[in-house]
Write a protein that binds this DNA or RNA. Structure first.
Lengths: 211, 211, 211, 211
DNA sequence: CATGAATGAGAATTCATTCAT
DNA sequence: GATGAATGAATTCTCATTCAT
């Protein structure tokens, strides 16, 4: 949806603009975010923003998808092997994932706000899509677990999904918060803390769901 | 924090004003909510709003505490007997609670938005307070459970708290959504659906946490 | 179509606003007319204009109907007696009419521009209505003339209407121009000039149309 | 007044640019016409327009003279023989003239708007010139008629001119409108309609003016 | 106390024109 | 000569807040 003018820009400039936008939207919300500030921070003329996007809303929406793309790359729910145990998923590749999160506190904060519904209807579409993708994957995990006999089958999939989501979202949120809070290089200690959190989470998930 | 003029108003008018405010804030968010519309819907002059409150923000903040008071009355984390079993808490008094939720979809929606952080820093204080109260209560429940040997003690209280919050918040959100969606008188069927949800939740909580 | 706020204003202020608007629109056209200038000239705050009218266009449209009302009062095609001879209509009450025109050069100029189609589609509606009214009246005059045998009946009414309109519009335009150009009190000489014009016009109309 | 760069262009491109300009000016008026759209429709870069003309106004003015040239070629008030009877002028060469009008509805519309003063002061100069030329010619016709005794001499030339202009302009406008409205090849029927109009006009002119 | 008209700072958006490539 | 991205002045419109009645 950006105008062709934007797409023709070199990558560096495009990213500068979007990051400036995300920073402003994240800091002040959609309504109070000022195009002028975004332009300034992107070192671009105010009018140029309007050569790139129809209006503030479109700039915002594009920033959202841009951030969510990054976010999904990190979460990466598509890749996990089908044969991977339901619970092991969370325990693999954490160092890389967490380092990505630490590197991009701004995107993490923005994505978190989007996921939490802070932008209301504006991001409804993007959000629904994101949720649909996650849910689909999670339901498959649950169904698999039931089939292999590792997950209790006295409860509906939808109930187990709620449980699964509730637990993982909460722990994810805490981990995101830690990513923002940790400064400098990722230390072993920090990583251990995160892995410990995930291990506990998996333990609880497992015990709650297993038959 | 409202001005003395507001407090002198008769209850009916006060409520009319606050409900009009909540409706507008809930529908359009803080920034886009218009004082003019609030005044109109409350059948009060625009200027009067400023006789009652210093500014838009104060009106909003007061509306928040007003709604949260109602909400807390419903959730009612203060009352449960200390001796009540951790899990039984959720299974008692549901009919009354759910009926209250059904009766006030607006307040439910508003409170939900506040709790979800939709209003950002504006409600930070109120939110933190609310969270602190809930957390304190929940930690006590966990400590109690551990003492009585009903809750596993291989995990930190803080970890168990995350688990507990994650699960209960998710199920609560679903129940809130159902409250909004159910129309007319509360039917047995509807109540059963809610109770079934809660029972499943408690089962999962129990199995996950128990030793 | 103005907002209720405008209607509640005292007449003097309403007129001040509309005249300021007409002056600006007439001088610079719709696009280049600046709300700020209108407000200044009406000695009113810029924002107030927007309390009175939804937007620039509405202010313009209201100005148009306001001016046309005045104009129609002057032209006054409704009153002439049914029995009055077709041609005599133009020769009566000229002093009063012309004095009105002289008193309001701004309104005359504005109305002339509207009638000439200078504002394009913006005034299409108002214009069509005005033309419809005039035409209806003129067709009646022609039909009457034919019935009484004073007008040739070898030509269609529509053709005679074109002729009638062409001649009267041209002479009217010249008279309007004179109204703008004449300064100070209306002199006998000026009036004579106008009446002479009208007499010539009637002569030509008569001779062209009569059987 | 266009820059030398424009004159060096091949005829086809020049015409493409001017026609695109006329289309846009005619459709939206001078102020709202966008250079960008003109460039697009002319399949030329926006910047190129500024290689051809100093600014928007110059492009407009050039478009005006370009259109008026075409228009005058059609109206062709220069050619009629001095000895041709005043009224016969309108009755000759109509097929060719009308076909030209039908072929170029855009130019007709644009020229009509110019003549009607829709562009205000912008075209004042061009307009005045056009009127001066027409008027000069018409006055000569009148003077001739008076000399030969075919036109009444109890009225001033200037009065007769008004009459003549009023009638001919009105009928011309109607014919222009028909040109726009008629689609496809020029049919005999359409031509008859136009000639009938002109004949009626001449009849009325004659009867009104003759002695 | 109630009322609602007045105010003007502030933000989004537009687009003619420039200019580096 | 052609191109189209960059620029920013200019303008419309919004709305919280004030204040005279």
């Amino acid at each position: 949806m950006p105008k062709r003018t934007f797409n023709r820009l070199d990558e560096e400039k495009k990213e500068r603009v979007i990051r400036a936008a995300i920073e402003e939207f994240q800091a002040h919300g959609f309504e109070k975010a000022k195009i002028e500030i975004i332009a300034q921070n992107a070192e671009v003329a105010k009018g140029s923003i309007y050569q790139y996007f129809d209006d503030k809303k479109e700039l915002f929406l594009y920033s959202v998808t841009w951030a969510l793309n990054y976010f999904m790359m990190v979460i990466d729910r598509q890749t996990p092997l089908k044969e991977m145990d339901v619970y092991d998923y969370f325990l693999s590749g954490n160092r890389e994932r967490f380092e990505l999160l630490k590197k991009e506190p701004l995107l993490v904060a923005f994505s978190t706000d989007i996921a939490s519904g802070k932008y209301g209807n504006l991001t409804k579409e993007a959000n629904d899509e994101l949720n649909r993708i996650g849910e689909e994957y999670e339901l498959k995990l649950i169904a698999n677990g039931k089939k292999r006999g590792t997950i209790r089958n006295d409860l509906d999939d939808s109930i187990l999904l709620l449980f699964f989501q509730g637990v993982t979202e909460k722990f994810t949120a805490v981990i995101m918060a830690k990513a923002k809070e940790f400064e400098g290089e990722l230390t072993e200690e920090q990583l251990n803390e995160v892995e410990s959190l995930l291990k506990s989470m998996v333990t609880l998930l497992k015990q709650g769901m297993e038959r």
